[in-house]
């Protein structure tokens, strides 16, 4: 009897795993294998042998600057997105604003966080481009020439401003439930114990929110780091950031060496993996108090 049971359990185990077989096949074919192909390709010479030459070839001024610009762009747009999104969500939840503001803000954030890519670039060109609404309005009404002042939408800061249009709403969407999770009792307990509002935020609320903030920051970073469409539609192929360089490489416009493309893509994977590892380590350390 007992033996019979054991044997049946042995037989059943693989059968149950069959239930996620379609999912497993899908993820191997369209997620894991393609990624592995990039990783292996980065270490292959054109004749198929192992080499570090591809990675070494990344070390040119142009590619180094592309990575640096991409990382800066992602860090700054994620940082500003987190800060501004947090301020707006906190304003709506704790700032004593009418309750009616909240639901429209969340709906709009849902729309705006998905309004990325090509049309977003068009919207900003129509607004802050050379003949955009604000540019023209500032020039005709106040005689302020944005261009003469050094502002150019088709630049690093132009890209940051444009990326914020989906970064801020994403932050609002993710941080609002987290802010709702701050219990009123915590604020009140801190207050009766003599804490000022600032002390409450520094010692209680922010540490509790830290994992969410960190996670959102990592997500926003990846979001900006991998974005192609917005930048491409805004500036065309000339802006020197990694995804655009890779895009051009895949299309066969530049570089020539196909294995350099692998290295370029591998570098992107490496950076997002490093970013997420930092995120996971920090999160584990900041979550000791969580179940």
């Amino acid at each position: 009897m007992a033996k019979d049971k054991v044997r049946r359990a042995e037989r059943r185990l693989p059968l149950e795993w069959l239930g996620i077989l379609p999912f497993a096949i899908f993820s191997v074919l369209f997620l894991i294998l393609p990624t592995m192909r990039i990783v292996t390709g980065a270490f292959q010479s054109p004749d198929g042998g192992f080499t570090l030459q591809n990675l070494a070839d990344l070390n040119t001024a142009s590619i180094r600057s592309a990575y640096w610009t991409s990382i800066k762009l992602s860090l700054i747009s994620a940082g500003l997105g987190c800060a501004i999104g947090f301020a707006m969500a906190a304003a709506v939840i704790f700032g004593g604003l009418p309750k009616g503001v909240r639901s429209p803000l969340l709906t709009f954030s849902g729309v705006a966080s998905n309004f990325a890519g090509v049309p977003l670039a068009f919207a900003f060109i129509a607004t802050l481009g050379p003949v955009g609404l604000i540019t023209v309005w500032l020039k005709t009404e106040f005689g302020i020439n944005l261009r003469a002042m050094g502002f150019n939408l088709l630049s690093f800061w132009g890209l940051v401003i444009t990326y914020l249009f989906f970064q801020i709403p994403l932050m609002i969407l993710i941080i609002t439930p987290a802010l709702d999770g701050l219990k009123r009792e915590w604020r009140e307990a801190a207050a009766v114990l003599g804490a000022t509002t600032a002390q409450y935020w520094r010692m209680v609320a922010l540490p509790i929110l830290f994992p969410s903030l960190l996670g959102t920051f990592a997500l926003l970073f990846a979001n900006a780091f991998g974005a192609v469409a917005t930048a491409f539609a805004l500036t065309g192929p000339q802006l020197n950031i990694v995804p655009i360089k890779l895009f051009a490489q895949i299309r066969g416009d530049v570089l020539g060496n196909p294995n350099l493309g692998y290295a370029l893509a591998f570098g992107m994977i490496l950076i997002t993996v490093v970013a997420n590892t930092i995120y996971i380590v920090l999160r584990v350390r900041s979550e000791r108090w969580l179940k």
Binding site: I38, A222, T272
Partner: peptide, 18 residues
């Protein structure tokens, strides 16, 4: 969660080569 970490452009590059 992987698709949030691996950029779409990297994935499609893998598709093309694979």
């Amino acid at each position: 969660l992987l698709p949030l970490v691996i950029p779409a452009i990297v994935l499609v590059f893998g598709y093309i080569r694979l």
